[in-house]
Design a protein around this nucleic acid. Sequence first.
DNA 1: TTGCAAAATACGAACGGTCGTGCTAAAAAT
DNA 2: ATTTTTAGCACGACCGTTCGTATTTTGCAA
Lengths: 177, 177
Amino acid sequence: MASEIGLEAITIGTLADETGMSKSGLFAHFKSKENLQIEILAYAGSSFTAKVVTPALKTTAGIPRISALVENWTNWSGALPGGCIFVTASTEFSDRHGKVRDYLLKQQENWINCLRRIAESGIRTGDLKPDIDVDQFAYDLYSMLLGFYHYYKLLNDARSDNHQKKSFARLLEHYSL
Amino acid sequence: MASEIGLEAITIGTLADETGMSKSGLFAHFKSKENLQIEILAYAGSSFTAKVVTPALKTTAGIPRISALVENWTNWSGALPGGCIFVTASTEFSDRHGKVRDYLLKQQENWINCLRRIAESGIRTGDLKPDIDVDQFAYDLYSMLLGFYHYYKLLNDARSDNHQKKSFARLLEHYSL
DNA sequence: TTGCAAAATACGAACGGTCGTGCTAAAAAT
DNA sequence: ATTTTTAGCACGACCGTTCGTATTTTGCAA
């Protein structure tokens, strides 16, 4: 629900109906809507780690791992009915204040750190050039994913997959040895 | 307001207060909230054309025009208090149905068409390689902007500008002669 | 230029709903 | 027997929308 309509548009009433509980009964588990939103993000975060990050870390470091990460991410963003909840929440909370935004921001920083570390391991294996800027690599890789997501989700463009592959090839062409 | 909190989060009541009008008085101008949202998008669209597209088309075709478009876009996305309303609305309405989504989708297609035509004119001037895929170019350029926007808005990363410049250089390196 | 009907614009009040969030008590689990 | 979980009910606030009605502006005939 959160991925489809956003974290703010979720209401405790409809969520209670959906689960077959009473409004106050469900509400008792999360003392506030803010806590509910944070726990949704936390749940999505562990799911993201399990489906995207961990499997990638099990493949051999370097380009295979990077490719796995990209593929896992695109699969992840297509798995939830409403797409990637973190992209939705990011635009939704970029101009708000509070605990939800803080939590989301920490998750995003973790994700970018993950991208950076994978780039570093790629340098160590010799797949990537030794003098590249890993921050720039993370930036470019994430941009590529966000662009794909935009095309895929809103525009529903059938050529998104093809575009994404070419974009990824151009990225590797620049960063790999 | 729409760029900050989203098109759905806008309420006629607060909007009326903000303008000093009565709720029903303001409502009479837009027979429904849906119409209000569409007219907000239409207003933003003409502003976008005036500030981003038209000035770029006045510069010489080719790489100067592409650079101008990129710079205008980044300026545009930083001008509104809540950033680019089209990015916000895109994620907000990607999983909804109705007239607002349809209108937004048409605007996005216009924008991508604009990117494509600018690529084509770049080929004609000889700035870009003659055999490039203009759709791919539009995809890559838009991805770059979306990535920049994400870093800039949510993460508020001071290095966004620098990253963006390098990313743009890599793009031109690949597409230009 | 004036007079006047028609249209546009604005308002206050109210409608049925839904929102998040408290209470209290019953039911269930430990 | 005590803690946890759930339900019922109510609250004040706000939601989009409608209605009836003043006020202002406009278009046109005299």
